[in-house]
Design a protein around this nucleic acid. Sequence first.
DNA 1: CTTACAGTTAAACGACTGATTAAGTATCCA
DNA 2: TGGATACTTAATCAGTCGTTTAACTGTAAG
Lengths: 141, 141
Amino acid sequence: MSHPPPPPTADEPESAGCAVHEHRGGAVAIDPAACERAAAIFRALGDPQRLRMLAMLRDSERCVSELCHALHDNMPAISQRLRLLKAERIVRSRRDGKHIYYALADDHIARLVTVGLLHALEPAGAGRPPTAVEGQPAITV
Amino acid sequence: MSHPPPPPTADEPESAGCAVHEHRGGAVAIDPAACERAAAIFRALGDPQRLRMLAMLRDSERCVSELCHALHDNMPAISQRLRLLKAERIVRSRRDGKHIYYALADDHIARLVTVGLLHALEPAGAGRPPTAVEGQPAITV
DNA sequence: CTTACAGTTAAACGACTGATTAAGTATCCA
DNA sequence: TGGATACTTAATCAGTCGTTTAACTGTAAG
């Protein structure tokens, strides 16, 4: 009792209240806005149906009917997913006559989809753990 | 009316019912299990709080108290998130006395986190669109 | 202008998620 | 053994997400 957890104020006090035995410097220097945006992208990728769709679009652009047929789903469902993906600027759309063609917005998305799917295909602990020693060079992306 | 959309049977008929004007071969050859797994990973990354945590763990392993302090959140909340991440085999845990240290499970996760955050930092359409012409070499990851 | 095709939008509803509070487990030290 | 620290688990509950049905918009063809 007697020390309720401090409400999430957005500063970085090294004061008491949280009895951590021994702190490293606390290099939290992560841009919150970037986290928010990246999480939104990941969340949009975090659905099997949407991911399948994106995996298809990675190869080439497709119109909605094609996606419907390939994914065995009805048009409103596909359209809703496309709308969500477009709102996150993950896909682009282009009209051609009666058809609307969708494609990935940029290469980064394609890379994310590919890396994710590759990881999913590999055995459980394929990439050896990053050895957790601080001071190793940053990941080269 | 008069042609209700076929219920999602799990085969791939090129029969009628879906009036697509002109199909490409339909190279849907995406492993559904891989999609499911990859989507699960993306979904786990798709939360700002969890992503911040993973961004910290990318640098070095941390115990729960450290994460609580750095992220300004209470322990059960952190613990729940860690549990979820561990269930998806995204983080590993190691006990040392009274403390439990968490780290990323492997390099792939670190790469995904890094790529996602980098993309989020860049301006809107930084990676030029992948030109959508089929036949270009596969993305080299 | 009317019909058919291609796609979007709206609204309702069930399922899942995430935060919170409280209680429980595990390890160390005196 | 008792207490304190470090962390986990359980249970509740509000908010969010995704699917579904139906209605609506836009384009081309006759």
